[in-house]
Design a protein around this nucleic acid. Structure first.
Lengths: 196, 196
DNA sequence: TGTTGAGTTCAACGCTAGTTGAATAGCTGA
DNA sequence: TCAGCTATTCAACTAGCGTTGAACTCAACA
């Protein structure tokens, strides 16, 4: 019964910690998740977390980026008729959100609400990594306003579908969600912003 | 230097506690706010909180309802041309949100993200107290879907304007916000929900 | 005037949290 | 084989939390 010391099996403890952290941060938010709980989820002593990560916040940031989930989907969103950009954007975003049990963006959304630093991270991700590229592909004015409007509808959709769990929006299939939300996003992207 | 015992001035400590609680819950969310911090904000010993309220959750609920902020604005939203219902709804909602430094709904929004019980409270408030009455005043189908769509855009607007502080949406005046958001809400309320 | 009850503080309990330093066990390369 | 690095655990520290019970002081009413 060896207690301390290195394990004999070739387990990847760092990855186990990141997976457990993802789950825990997603379920409970940044403040609600505990190092002890994450360590328990990975079957490991809490102190071990500090062997791999500087502190709780570093673990959070690392968990957000694991596995690498960059905007590599952007090209296929941008390709095609700009008149159907809203359809492709909403479809891609919702399918990414639906695809995993603990989407990093939803984790960040949960934590952004009570932590201004994470709100900054989310805002910068949304604007810099997603919406600016999309809008730069269009010939429109008022890009920043349009970007924030699209963000407002997408964030609201995430809140309604995953956090508040509003009955019809939560159970709708991806195609139905796209059908009702995409026209709004399309107007924010390319439509007139005055009276509609 | 009297330490314990009743105060001589006619101060309303209960109201002071509720005001401090509002501010603290708004700033930090339910879990992040502390009884000790709220008591300090009211210039009072933490134990005094338990003289007036059963526990932290009771204080939270009491702070949400203080001062009474029911949907007494509904009639003036419902009155008038249904074609401009979106304008009146968005205008009223944003002006309520902007009017106070710690709107109860925004507090609830902040806390709902990490606490399912508060998510239920917020959902029920939005649907039962605001959106069902509005939709019952219209002759439309798919009321529940329309309600959740309106909720998604309003919640997203709140997130963008007050939590994420997306630059243009945060600084826009109420009239400008209404101008860009109301058409979306109007379509969700009365427009076609298929391809737009 | 005396008594009661409401308002108020003090001190503490039990719990959980993030974090750290020392000790131990196994792997790797000389 | 052995030295040293890395992985791992143990035990503890400090700080903060919600909450409680007892004590004290004043105001109001009989």
């Amino acid at each position: 019964m060896t207690r301390t010391g290195r394990r004999s099996d070739g387990s990847d403890t760092r990855a186990d910690l990141l997976t457990a952290a993802q789950r825990e941060f997603y379920d409970r938010g940044y403040a609600g998740a505990s190092i002890r709980g994450i360590a328990a989820g990975a079957g490991v002593d809490p102190a071990l977390v500090y062997h791999y990560f500087a502190d709780k916040q570093a673990l959070f940031v690392a968990a957000l980026r694991f596995p690498a989930n960059p905007a590599e989907k952007l090209p296929q969103v941008l390709a095609g008729d700009p008149k159907e950009l809203g359809i492709r954007l909403v479809g891609t975003v919702v399918s990414v959100w639906d695809s995993t049990e603990s989407s990093p963006i939803l984790t960040l959304l949960r934590s952004a609400v009570t932590n201004p630093a994470f709100a900054d991270m989310l805002r910068e991700f949304l604007i810099d990594a997603v919406l600016r590229p999309v809008l730069d592909s269009l010939v429109v004015q008022q890009r920043e306003l349009r970007a924030s409007l699209v963000a407002s509808q997408l964030v609201g959709l995430a809140m309604a579908r995953y956090v508040l769990r509003l009955p019809p929006l939560t159970t709708l299939g991806i195609d139905d969600v796209v059908q009702v939300i995409a026209p709004t996003v399309q107007r924010y992207l390319t439509g007139p912003l005055g009276a509609g």
